[in-house]
Design a protein around this nucleic acid. Structure first.
Lengths: 152, 152
DNA sequence: CACTCTCCGTGGACACGATCGACCTGAGCC
DNA sequence: GGCTCAGGTCGATCGTGTCCACGGAGAGTG
């Protein structure tokens, strides 16, 4: 994980579809060298995936909600997590410090579907209660921040 | 936005680096046809960007926080938003229903940096108070959910 | 119905990129 | 010094991106 790797990561966070040739030009190495470095970044888990970022409304997911979860005092956190994992509408899941053990970000098409989702969550074993906040609009999301070399 | 476009979007959400040739095979069209369709999805704003998803710890962003913002009663929301936009640590910004007008997701390297960030937010014009919750771990994030045809 | 326009696709052509193998170089170590 | 290894370059080959000319299906019109 040197400066060049960091540049590659930054470039790919900005545009995941850059060709190896283009990456090579940007960092001043040959294409095969970049190819190998990126391969290592992928297999070591630094780069997890390449994803197209899509306007949610245009794929029928116009409703965004953030849902805090309070667990039962005797809940098995792993089981709860497993239940959440099986709910596709939950796009993100954070394990939190505080009264609410989890914070979920979910996207659905309609308020009716959100209602169903909340009911389902409340019925999930280990879940004591939920607290849902609706996002009226997403100003931005997953904006990559500029990277600084480790000691900066 | 027909079924084929939806398939393309779904494929690219799963792996943004698929070649046009591969996409073409998957959806049963020729490569140029796919190229044109994807181009239109991009320029119409359905596809906003292609991003590499990176393990935050490995780029020195090991601390994730979710921060609720309560605005001053006389705050100019647009100005507040503009101030937030200039803070690179804020990766996501949602405008919320509820007492807290905004929910921010921020990533920083250390707790000390988080402290600085919170101070900065509290000093921002229009911000009355903040409420920060720390994510102990990110179970998953931005998982693409399977797409259904519009009327399903 | 026949004509035409438009949209959306196909296939061919060609330059460019991905990727493999052979080789080179410098650092670390006996 | 000589080995070894990591990590680079170069060249060759093959697949892909992308431009272009062309063609068929469907809607609107005389």
């Amino acid at each position: 994980m040197d400066t060049i790797d960091l540049s590659l990561v930054e470039l790919l966070r900005g545009n995941a579809r850059l060709s190896y040739a283009e990456l090579a030009r940007q960092v001043g190495l040959s294409a095969p060298a970049v190819h190998e470095r990126v391969g290592k970044l992928e297999s070591s888990g630094v780069i997890r995936a390449y994803r197209a970022e899509v306007e949610p409304e245009s794929i029928g997911l116009g409703v965004t909600a953030l849902i805090g979860i309070i667990e039962d005092s005797d809940a098995d956190t792993d089981d709860v997590l497993e239940s959440f994992r099986r709910i596709p509408e939950i796009e993100s899941c954070y394990f939190m410090a505080g009264v609410e053990s989890f914070l979920l970000k979910a996207r659905v098409g309609t308020i009716a579907e959100l209602e169903q989702l909340i009911v389902r969550l409340n019925r999930t074993a280990g879940v004591a209660s939920t607290r849902t906040s609706i996002a009226l609009s997403t100003k931005w999301e997953n904006r990559p921040q500029p990277l600084e070399p480790p000691t900066a």
